[in-house]
């Protein structure tokens, strides 16, 4: 990630929650740079902080420490009104489109809203752009008068995507945009996202747990565990030869459509139920230590994030051989 300045950047970002007097960590010392026009996928198990990462990047959630920059400007230092104006350029797509749409607003009002609140149109003359956007995402322009409950899940996600891109943003955070949809619809939405990226030069932060999809869709993948980034690189290379034992575990959890291979996979993956096991958090240690087959005494200290190949980084003591 050298060369041109990144479009968006997180530097030393941590998020801490204080719940019932106990401190818990959402994100720990995240450094992440997003190049313009790229698709960066974030993978990891539930609760690892993927969604928090997306929200903090858009500054929908205040980080406890660190800087979140967009086009070089630190969002954490902006005033409320200034931040609101910047939102035109950075949008979000949610997992559940129905929950993310206002049930009491028509589709037309929902889509015109980003244009109006950013002064790009008035309510009266937003209609042609709304109609064009609806056609662009594969819906009839006539649906503008209808309400979200009148649509199917896939159509709602098209509407939510249309709302996210109608003001022509640069960065779109997509938080598991496909996991509430069935398989055939998923494919259509992926091609829609890809074609919108091409015409609008979008940068995607694509939060997912669907590794085959990530491999197909993203140019770069970031693996998270317990609020930390532990591996970063091109998906093909990362999934073919994982540098971090946790990535290896994630890859081995993807079912294979061949019974013989599947049995071998399950044997290799071992007892996957341990994935959900909660352990006492020790933030000085590697978060994967208690589940790692290669755990060593040195794993009581968090390994540094190092290059394991020119375009790949990982945080694991296995690569500190020298």
């Amino acid at each position: 990630m050298t060369g041109a300045a990144p479009l968006a950047e997180m530097a030393g970002v941590s998020v801490r929650y204080r719940r019932a007097g106990r401190l818990s960590h959402g994100l720990i010392a995240i450094d992440l740079q997003l190049a313009a026009n790229a698709t960066v996928a974030v993978v990891g198990e539930s609760g690892c902080g993927k969604s928090t990462l997306g929200r903090v990047l858009l500054h929908l959630q205040q980080p406890s420490e660190g800087a979140v920059r967009f086009r070089g400007e630190d969002l954490t230092l902006l005033k409320r009104a200034e931040l609101r104006r910047r939102r035109r350029a950075m949008q979000m797509i949610f997992q559940d489109p129905f929950a993310s749409l206002n049930a009491r607003m028509t589709i037309g009002e929902t889509l015109a809203e980003p244009l109006v609140v950013h002064g790009l149109a008035r309510w009266r003359d937003a209609r042609p752009r709304v109609a064009a956007m609806l056609e662009r995402v594969g819906l009839e322009p006539g649906v503008a008068a209808r309400y979200p409950h009148e649509f199917s899940g896939g159509q709602r996600q098209r509407i939510a995507i249309a709302r996210a891109v109608i003001a022509e943003p640069e960065l779109v955070v997509a938080d598991e945009p496909l996991s509430a949809l069935d398989m055939t619809v998923q494919g259509q939405i992926v091609s829609l996202l890809a074609s919108l990226q091409e015409t609008l030069s979008l940068t995607y932060l694509f939060i997912s747990h669907d590794l085959p999809l990530v491999r197909e869709f993203a140019g770069r993948v970031v693996v998270m565990i317990a609020g930390r980034i532990v591996e970063d690189g091109p998906p093909d290379a990362v999934f073919a030869t994982p540098a971090h034992p946790y990535t290896k575990l994630l890859v081995s959890c993807v079912p294979v459509p061949d019974p013989a291979q599947e049995r071998a996979r399950q044997a290799a993956a071992g007892n996957t139920s341990t994935i959900a096991a909660a352990e006492a958090p020790d933030h000085a240690a590697c978060p994967f230590r208690s589940r790692c087959p290669h755990a060593m005494p040195i794993c009581a200290t968090m390994p540094p994030f190092r290059h394991v190949a020119p375009d790949r980084q990982a945080a694991c003591w296995l690569h500190e051989s020298s």
Binding site: L60, Q91, A164
Partner: peptide, 10 residues
């Protein structure tokens, strides 16, 4: 989500 979405839109 629908409130978060509205905030994200600006």
């Amino acid at each position: 989500d629908f409130i978060l979405a509205a905030r994200a839109v600006g």
